[in-house]
Structure formats: C-alpha cells, structure tokens
Amino acid sequence: MKKYKALSFFILPGIIFYILFFIFPTISALGLSFTDWNGLSPDYNFVGFKNYKLLLTDDPIFIKSVSNNLKYMFSVVVFQTLISLVFAILLAKNTKLNVFYRAVLFLPTIISSVSVAFVWIFVYEPSIGSLNAVLSALGLDFLIKSWLGDKNIAIYSLAFVQVWAHAGQVMIIFIAGLHAIPKSLYEVARIEGATKWQTFRNVTWPLLAPSATIVIAYTTLQSFKAFDLILATTDGGPSYATEILSLFLYHEAFNNFKFGYSSAIAVVFMLIIAVITIVQFRLLKSNKVNY
C-alpha cells in the first residue's frame, strides 16, 4: 500500500487543477441553470425549472439554433466523410507526391479559425469576392449570391468552410485505416478476379469501418461544437440564420446577461451531445466485421 501512496504525488497536482477548473465549473453550470442570475448583481433567486420550461416551450431562437445545428452537422458529416474517404483512397500510397498532397490538404487544420473565417469572408464577399467572380467568368451569373448574407444558404456556406478546413485532418484517419488492411486480402480478391468495385465493397469498405466510425463520431462532435468560425464570420446572422447552440448560449450570457438562462442552454446542449454520442455509438458498433 505504501508503494501506491507515493503515487498520489503524481496525481494530485493535475487532479486538483482538473477538479477546480473543469469538473467544478461543469457541475455548477447545472446549479446556475436553476437560477435567474444576471451575472452582475450579487444575489439571485432559485427559480426551479422555469428556465428549462421557457427554453423548451417558448423560445423560437432555441428551436432555430437546434435546427441550424442539425443542418450544419448533417452537411458537414456527409461531405467531410465522403471527401476525406475519396482523397484517402487516392493518396493512400506513400509516394513523395502523395505525401505532398496530404500536407497541402492538411494545411487548413493548423490555421486558426479566425484566420480561416477572414479568408472565406473575402472569398464569399458579394462584390469583390472571388467566388462570384469565378461564377461570372464561367457565365454562371444566375448562381451569384450573397453567400453569407442570404439567410437560406448562409449556414451551408459555413458548413462548406468547415469541411474545407477539416477534411484533410480526418483523411489522415482513413489513410491510417487503409494501411492497416492486410495486403493478403487484396491478393485473394485479385486471384478470385474481383472487380475494383467488388474489392472496394467487400474488402476495403468493411475493413475500413472502424476508421469510418472514428471519422463520423469525431466529425459529428466537431461540427456540433463549432463556435469560432461562425462567431468570426456571421456571428449568428443574418436574422439568426446561422445561430447555433454554442453561439446562442454565448450571446445570452455575455450580450444579454442572462447567466441563469444561458446555463440552462448549456445543460441542454450537453444532453443533446450525450444523446448523439450514445445513439451513434450504438449504430456504429453494429458495424464491425471480422475476417
């Protein structure tokens, strides 16, 4: 037992930090969510489930935010997974050229979201932006839009930027997955005369399932928690068209000084993430194969 006591010296410093600055705040979010605190005055009242009731039954911006979150999440998950899978397959071989391509595709991952946001504000700019200039040059003038100003498409324009910034990152997970597939299986497929598609369908895809699980789970959470990019581009506008939960709770707390109400949003946000994680874990787990 004495042997293990010495280990507490290794645990305590980090754990104290973690409990004080992580666990404690997370739990107190729950406590604050039952109050009407405005963040400024020294006292506040306990209001029971009032914040939750208001949020879930009578707040159109909450509904709008959840629906924006879902639009954003689904478009990012679908496109990021497909694009990263396609490029992982194209770049799986470790040639010099492929290593270069991978490095380029990965590059946006290391640039701060604020910088990425400004880059795309410029690309999407209605009058001097390059996207509209390119469309115009191609004779596609009918496609010219105010990409971040049109409330029907702004959320998708942002989802595109998210994919642009992170597809290269999750591609690496797929490439690692491809490298882990035993070569002998491809030889068997070749000897049996399988077509490319059959090989992909019956060897690559099933054996890539664990990587796909990681990619999809990671992308789902990453897109659900998006914050910096949207704050720096549209800040939730125009007219809440890009307001998502994380921004909504930030605005309610620090623009409107509703700390209690905003904590209730945080708790609901956390619960939604927990539900998504559990559902996904169940769905994707049934996906495993053995050869």
Binding site: I15, P25, T26, A29, S246, A253, F269, I273, T277
Partner: peptide
C-alpha cells in the same frame, strides 16, 4: 477509475462550462 474520471472531460464541450469558469 482514475483514467475514466479524467478522460470524462473530453466529453464536455468548452462552451458548456464557459459561464461558471468565467464566474470562478
């Protein structure tokens, strides 16, 4: 148990704890 307790934190989005952290 210790591993589970510490890595539990990876499940919590930063935005969830931002108000209490600010207050703290």
């Amino acid at each position: 148990i210790l591993f589970g307790f510490v890595t539990l934190g990876m499940m919590v989005p930063t935005q969830v704890k931002m108000i209490p952290t600010y207050v703290l």
